[in-house]
Nucleic acid binder design. Structure first.
Lengths: 337, 337
DNA sequence: TACCATTTTGCACGCGCGAGCAAAAAACTC
DNA sequence: GAGTTTTTTGCTCGCGCGTGCAAAATGGTA
């Protein structure tokens, strides 16, 4: 023992000396399910409190190969719904013992780099909440064993190397479609996001299919390149401008709220029309702004809290893959449709 | 050497064998400014590529006491401007070699826990972007040496244990005030956020002071408890309802965009009035929605990118404390005032 | 070729903790 | 109280890499 060894950080060793136990007993005192008598735990915690000791998670990670860290990759900060997801995920993850490493991925190559970086940090999982992660990058990342677990949040993937935590998009979109049909709309246009991913393609396909079944005709659709309200504003304006009056829709069924908000703004401010009187609009996500008096958006609320808890179950290793991709939310009907 | 030792992860040792150098040379090859010949670096990188090796950052952190990680504490996910800040900070930090640990702090006690957790992760700094971190918690955290560096982003603090990276709030608010004066408004009301922190108090005080100097009279103000557009909507409605017609303001000068958006919505949808014709509004932050046709908000844009780069300088240890708290943004004039 | 300056490489040691086992202590049993 | 089971404690070894220094290699000069 070198009591005067100029050390700034106090370790389990120091606490052990003060408490009169071994270093290992000290660390055990900090694990809820460790084999330790309540008496020595008390002694240790008291000594630790006195010295201001807390276990070093870096060292713990190195020794145990569990970092209790999750990488959260997001590529789409212009969609306000991401804020809600981040709030919920970070809160629930931390409450369950996981830290969140937030990564802003610029494009696919950058996402690949981020996954490598995630591995270097030994994260327990990489969680993707994004629109532009293609199936190919998922396959590459999964195959290369970049990270222990690759989880898609709020999005479905058929890739066997990944785990999806998402709501039942088909059922959700069907309930929106039925609402549109029941309200008597006759000329819908589906406003779709970037066409790269199967999950959201499913929304479009579900809508088109169900409309076809109910009305015996093909519904129109128009794509928007990103889930950004401003871009949606521009694209919807362009799309509507290109139509003859006789072709105009009476409702825009949007793939999510970000697109819907851009659409509503465009309808009002570019064409001077009323929502829903002239053209109605529906969204998806129930972002906080959807309730704003400017929008009063009819939309679909995903059970994000339950989904986040499902994510925690995945991290713990206990989950039912099928239930994970079939969370059920609910239709929120407001004035926009 | 045990070539058959059932190891899943390949380490620098394995690469060293393949490249015919020592383990240390392997690790050196991955540090940009290490003392190593270009020939051996080439050999190492080739071998590493072949084996799919990347240095382990956990082990590196343990050995070097530098984690290249930053904790980002946010307590206010309902303010959309946070999304912009997160996007910018995570991007620039990662570009400069730092990872971002995002923490959602619920209240002050929770923030204290988060700081302890940050220390356990050995983060190089904790960055606070929040409204409810009081001076007392800062002092406590700073004094207890919880983390190596305590940085306030986009907010000023007089606490000597912390470092502020923020714009010159006084100059900024003065330019807004001058704009209000020059446009000939005569009955302003300042809509203030939670009154807990000096930085934002400064905005209010700056406005009141300059108004007093220019007009020789005291301007009114009203507080809102959080920077949440919905809460602001409610509070502004309540405040205006309590006034006699003769006392009505002709402009609401809001502490930030979140409050301004709530105010605009309230003016329009609760009182059926027009902005700016009946009551004008100004904000602060220039959130993306500020440009939205529903708001067209006159506001002040902080130089977030430059501020983020300033933050990186702090992490690197090279900075001028005074310049850090005096970034200059610019007034963005739109139709709302 | 011998000598010195400079660059490059290798190595002992330590960072703080965890897994898993063996020794010790405590709790029961008869 | 001796024997047995169960709980608790201590310990060896290793996780993968960085630090700082000494040895080796390289380059330049006379």
């Amino acid at each position: 023992m070198k009591p005067d060894k100029l050390r700034e950080s106090i370790t389990a060793h120091d606490v052990a000396e003060l408490a009169g136990v071994s270093r290992w007993t000290v660390n055990r005192a900090f694990k809820p399910d460790a084999s330790i008598s309540s008496e020595s735990r008390r002694k240790v915690l008291e000594a630790a409190g006195q010295l201001g000791y807390t276990p070093d998670l870096i060292a713990s990670s190195l020794a145990s190969d569990r970092s209790n860290l999750v990488s959260l990759l997001i590529d789409d900060f212009s969609n306000p719904h991401k804020l809600v997801m981040m709030e919920r995920l970070t809160r629930i993850l931390r409450h369950s013992g996981w830290g969140t490493l937030l990564v802003n991925t610029l494009d696919e190559d950058d996402a690949a780099l981020a996954l490598v970086n995630a591995r270097q940090h030994r994260v327990d999982a990489a969680v993707l909440i994004g629109s532009q992660f293609s199936e190919s990058i998922l396959a590459a990342a999964g195959g290369a064993q970049q990270v222990k677990k690759l989880i898609l949040f709020a999005r479905y993937s058929a890739d066997p190397g990944t785990i999806s935590v998402c709501c039942d998009d088909k059922a959700a979109m069907e309930s929106i479609t039925d609402h549109v049909i029941n309200r008597g709309f006759s000329h819908p246009v589906f406003i779709a996001g970037p066409q790269t991913q199967s999950a959201h393609l499913m929304r479009k396909e579900t809508f088109l299919k169900r409309w076809q079944e109910a009305r015996g005709e093909q519904a129109a659709f128009a794509p928007v390149e990103t889930y950004d309200p401003q871009i949606a504003y521009r694209e919807v304006t362009r799309y509507l401008s290109g139509l003859k009056r006789s072709e105009w829709p009476d409702i825009l069924v949007c793939e999510n709220d970000a697109l819907a908000m851009g659409a509503i703004d465009a309808i009002r401010h570019e064409f001077g029309l009323r929502v829903p009187d002239d053209i109605a609009v529906t969204g998806f996500d129930d972002t906080p702004v959807a309730a704003n008096p400017n929008y009063r958006l009819t939309t679909y609320r995903q059970p994000i809290t339950a989904m986040a808890e499902g994510l925690v179950d995945v991290l713990k290793g206990e989950y039912d893959p099928d239930a994970l991709s079939h969370f059920i939310g609910r239709l929120v009907v407001r004035e926009s449709a």
